[in-house]
Computed example of a mutant assay.
Amino acid sequence: MPTIKKFQVTFDCAEPERVARFWCEVLGYVVPPPPEGFTTWDEYARSLPPEEQDSWFACVDPSGVGPRLFFQRVPEGKAVKNRVHLDVRVGTGLVGEERLATLQAECARLVALGATTVQVLLADEDNESCIVMQDIEGNEFCLD
């Protein structure tokens, strides 16, 4: 019988800490404590060579259930649609107008944090409503 493996989701981005803190707000994640021997992440960053400072950041599910999110600085900007995206499940179990209202309320909260609404997909005979969005650096995700 295969074992379940832990995994992390990695984002390429220009500003790792900024994007990580956005996703903390979206998902209720937290920034983990700095490495042993450092009292703050800033103190840790100052201990690194200049080219490595601010090159990555991470956030974690405080319950320990969800995957760690890792954000790494890359030199190039986003050029094409993501091949993988997150579905933020805020409407699970809801249908019709109640689901759409819940998705729209969460969408408004995330837009206030810097997200962008791309498209509202209304329910049809096969699927419930969802909202396609982008985070603060243009990475697509769905409110589902």
Rank of each mutant, 00 (worst) to 15 (best):
I4Q: 02
I4Y: 00
K5G: 01
K6D: 15
V9H: 01
F11M: 07
D12P: 06
C13N: 01
C13Q: 08
A14W: 07
A14T: 03
E17F: 00
V19K: 00
A20Y: 09
W23Y: 09
C24L: 12
E25K: 08
L27Y: 09
Y29E: 05
V30Q: 15
V31D: 10
P33R: 11
P33K: 12
G37R: 10
F38V: 04
F38C: 03
T40A: 11
D42I: 05
E43D: 10
S47E: 13
P49E: 15
P49F: 01
E51P: 03
E52G: 05
D54W: 02
S55R: 09
W56Q: 11
V60M: 13
D61R: 07
D61T: 03
P62N: 10
S63D: 11
G64H: 04
V65R: 10
F70M: 12
F71W: 05
Q72T: 07
E76C: 06
G77Q: 13
N82I: 06
V84W: 08
H85F: 02
H85D: 04
L86F: 04
L86V: 04
D87Y: 01
R89V: 02
A101E: 15
Q104K: 14
A108V: 03
L110E: 10
V111Q: 14
L113S: 10
G114W: 03
G114Y: 04
G114S: 12
G114C: 09
T116Q: 14
T117P: 03
Q119V: 04
L122Q: 15
D126C: 11
S129L: 09
M133G: 06
Q134E: 15
D135L: 06
D135R: 04
E137D: 03
E137R: 00
C142P: 08
